[in-house]
Amino acid sequence: MQTPAPTDYVRATSVSHAISLLEEHGEESRILAGGHSLLPMMKLRIARPEMLIDINELDELRGIRVDGDELVLGAMVTHREVLESPVLFEHYAIFRECEKVIADPLVRNRGTVGGSMCQADPSEDLSAVGSALRGSVVIQGASGTRTVPLREFHEGPYETQVEPAEIMTEVRFPIRPGAGSAYEKVERRVGDWPVCSAGVYVVVSDGLVTDCGIGLTAVSAEHFCAPAAEAFLIGKAPTEDNLRSAAQLAADAADPSSDQRGPADYKKHLANELTYRALVRAAAASQGA
């Protein structure tokens, strides 16, 4: 069986303790959240941190709550908690639809929102949701906290704005009354990473789209979103033609590469098709259908 390279392990007792441990151990230390991205990489010996700082005991990073007009998820909220959260579902069906197709029930028991976001896999489903909903993340360091919009969070595959001695503590999403949302994913098999996914929300008011967000993953869309498609839809009726046009614009934002999940032309097609399907359902949901 594959085994990690030698490492050390320490449990953080608070977020500030974790940050001081990161500062103490430098760039060779890594935060250990759910471990479901990091430990497999350590077993492959692609990741070789010398110190693991375990934040699983930090209750301050747990919990899902409403804070004013925002939904707030602690970084250590598990995928299962997102899947089963009534309050998230009440505001956005997309959370449940997306989480239902992330990995499998056991991985969802252990894997966390913060871990997934910070791993920043270019095929991460939650990144499409985060960008679609225009969420933001709260990052804490020794000098305090800062809030970064998710549409600015990623600097590239596996790279985020979280600095070596910082921790993501929360993800926040604006509540949008009347929004309908949906998630569409094509995977080679249940539990696989997406070939392509599209997540959207739409607010339809008096027959016109007044607000929307479109997220894409696994197709190299910049910041996991499709702004031109969003801009196109605002002020338009959610007709089949308009939604088709928006979906085409979303596909234009995708720049996928071929791999064993599929050739680039197929992924580009999926960006279009899945965006369209998600828009149809989200618009219908917003209109109470």
Binding site: M1, Y9, L32, G35, H36, L39, P40, K43, L52, D54, N56, P105, L106, V107, N109, R110
Partner: peptide, 18 residues
């Protein structure tokens, strides 16, 4: 698969230290 604190988890992806 085993349980840790009553949750089913994949024990190849958890450190014993955890």
């Amino acid at each position: 698969t085993v349980w840790v604190d009553g949750e089913a988890v994949k024990s190849c992806t958890v450190l014993a230290a955890q």
